[in-house]
Write a protein that binds this DNA or RNA. Structure first.
Length: 563
RNA sequence: UGGGGUGUCGUCAAGCGGUAAGACACAGGUCUUUGGAACCUGGACUCGGAGGUUCGAAUCCUCCCACCCCAGCCA
């Protein structure tokens, strides 16, 4: 794959890691983890984190664990676990036997909580949710201490044990860390460690009715796994003092370093689980793997190669600035990748019938055409040619503007891999006045690259033989939203959805070599774009997804919309 | 009007006191049987703003401004 940046990535995280290596902070170890919560599908924002965590581990000779951060039974399920596993694998990373679940640590976490209670650093609070919120204070006012804050260790132990035993109603008690209700950092105002939930957990079923909160579970899970660098996104910066507090108070052997980086924002889409769920549930898209979705499942179905995504994640680099990445960069990585490895074939999306008057009726030729003109090692296939062809409707204009140099009345162009043809007649539909069929003549001396006496032609157009080509359905995708940042402005981001993000064309014609292309395989339809076979394809219909268009300086120059 | 972060080209982003890397985008050009690809060229007299320190500041100091995050028994 084309790789422009050959030097290994270097950023503030790696800089910190190298400092730790120099000062022997972790005995030379580098161990990371990717900790998704299995309550939704992974998207390209997660890919950034996956690439960072697995990439760093590989770079420094360490390991990266895959850990399901499943501490909230509502919404989490095995289907999501399976999809996460599939997606991370697809991206190209492996974790061997290091697939862990926070839910596997429930007993250990419980014991840690007991330890904290014994130390007088945690207490059972019996305020209700509204009261807790009220006691917490606000951004500008300090909180007030809970009336239950000074229960004895014995009482706390007893109550916590009974919470676990299921003696109390949901919401009646929580376990809280005893820190500082006046802290300017709200995270430190006696944060909740455990809450009672009678919802069954997808892995532990009804074994537990108390579940640990993120702040308590995460740092300890990291410690249990001997993680050295716990990389997370910026919004957890406020939580770092708490991350450190638990580990310090519990005096654990392994105390990882939490490091925060800016999450990915990509133009013309949204990258938040909550909003993606909304798109799926409101049927704005066909599902999690709709090719317009920024989910890894969607991108896989769309035909985005995983190594292009990895390259993209490396190129956007890692920093702490809130940023909105230009989709053009993603598209560039995709084109760079696909340009190198996609086989070239011919397909006509909007067919226009073209008859070559001086080509013998019934005659057929088969031309051996390379799958990749720049790379002959990719082989070739036979492309049949005959008297009646289909060309792209937009490759002909009856009254061409100055800079249009494709086919027009009296004009000559080359057929890709074939002859020069000249348009001699235009037949229109008498009712609509639309161009219905073109008549041309061909020059037998001009086959495949030959041109007598240096005769030149301005354009080369693609085509398929009418009788030999096969029908196909093509799905054209455009950006999901009309604006770069759908979260800015209107209260409902869905108001910015691009109504034309999917266009299905059922009357396409593709060259016969595509007849048995397997789902997922990627091609360049010459002059049109990159496409892949959709799993919806069957013996009856071939369905292609447009991965993306080719760069198109003509449509840019003519100010015309992409086909 | 608390606390935590961030502000360098249109978009990302290096820079860590010695006189503004790189990528994408954009513009122009070469080449070409894909108006594709490849290749060449061009662009921040300036680093959120204002002061200050220094021979020298994007980098240090002071003040100001803007934006993001935190008041879930979510993560």
């Amino acid at each position: 794959m084309a790789q422009t940046n050959l030097s290994p990535p270097f950023d503030f995280i790696r800089e910190m890691i190298e400092e730790h290596l120099r000062t022997n902070r972790f005995q030379g170890r580098v161990m990371t983890r990717f900790p998704p919560e299995p309550n939704g599908y992974l998207h390209i924002g997660h890919a950034k984190s996956v690439c960072l965590n697995f990439g760093i581990a590989a770079q420094y000779g360490g390991t990266c664990n895959l850990r399901m951060d499943d501490t909230d039974p509502s919404g989490e399920n095995q289907e999501y676990v399976d999809s996460i596993i599939q997606d991370v694998k697809w991206l190209g990373f492996e974790w061997k036997d290091r697939l862990f679940y926070a839910s596997d640590y429930y007993e250990q976490l419980y014991q840690y909580a007991v330890q904290l209670i014994k130390k007088g650093k945690a207490y059972v609070c019996s305020l209700n949710a509204a009261e807790i919120r009220d006691y917490r204070g606000s951004l500008t006012e300090p909180g007030r201490e809970s009336p239950y804050r000074n229960r004895s260790v014995e009482e706390n132990l007893n109550l916590f044990e009974r919470m676990r035993a299921g003696e109390f109603k949901e919401g009646s008690h929580v376990l809280r860390a005893k820190i500082d209700m006046a802290s300017p950092n709200i995270t430190m105002r006696d944060p909740i460690m455990y809450r009672i939930r009678y919802e069954p957990h997808y892995r532990t079923a009804n074994q537990w009715c108390i579940y640990p909160m993120y702040d308590f579970a995460h740092c300890l899970s990291d410690s249990i796994e001997r993680i050295t660098h716990s990389i997370c996104t910026l919004e957890f910066e406020n939580n770092r003092p708490l991350y450190d507090w638990f580990l310090d108070e519990l005096n654990v052997e392994y105390h990882p370093q939490q490091i925060e980086f800016a999450r990915l924002n990509l133009g013309y889409t949204v990258l938040s689980k909550r909003r993606l769920i909304e798109l799926v549930e409101d049927k704005c898209v066909r599902g999690w793997d709709d090719p317009r979705m920024p989910t890894l499942a969607g991108m896989r179905r769309r035909g985005y190669p995983p190594d292009a995504i990895r390259n993209f994640c490396e190129r956007i680099s890692v920093a702490k600035n809130d940023s909105l990445i230009d989709v053009a960069l993603l598209e560039h990585c995709l084109r760079e990748n696909l340009n190198e490895k996609a086989q070239r074939v011919m397909a006509v999306l909007h067919p226009l019938r073209l008859v070559i008057d001086n080509y013998p009726e019934g005659q057929t030729e088969e031309w051996d055409s390379p799958y990749h003109p720049q790379n002959p090692e990719m082989g070739s296939r036979k492309v049949p040619f005959s008297r009646t062809l289909y060309i792209e409707q937009e490759d002909f204009l009856e009254n061409p503007p100055k800079k249009f140099y494709r086919l027009a009345p009296g004009r000559e162009v080359r057929l890709r891999y074939g002859y020069f043809i000249k348009c001699v007649n235009v037949i229109k539909d008498p009712k609509t006045g639309q161009v219905a069929e073109l008549h041309c003549t061909y020059d037998p001396e001009t086959r495949s690259g030959f041109a007598p006496n240096g005769r030149k032609v301005d354009a080369t157009i693609h085509w398929v033989s009418a009788d030999h080509s096969i029908p196909a359905e093509v799905r054209l995708y455009d950006r999901l939203f009309r604006v770069a940042n759908p979260l800015e402005g209107k209260s409902d981001f869905k108001e910015y959805l691009n109504e034309k993000s999917l266009e299905t064309i059922r009357s396409c014609r593709v060259e016969p070599s595509l007849a048995h292309a397997s789902p997922g395989s990627q091609f360049q339809f010459e002059r049109v774009g990159y496409f892949c076979v959709d799993p919806d394809s069957s013996d009856k219909v071939l369905v292609f997804n447009r991965i993306l268009t080719l760069r198109d300086s003509w449509s840019k120059a003519s100010g015309k919309e992409k086909i």
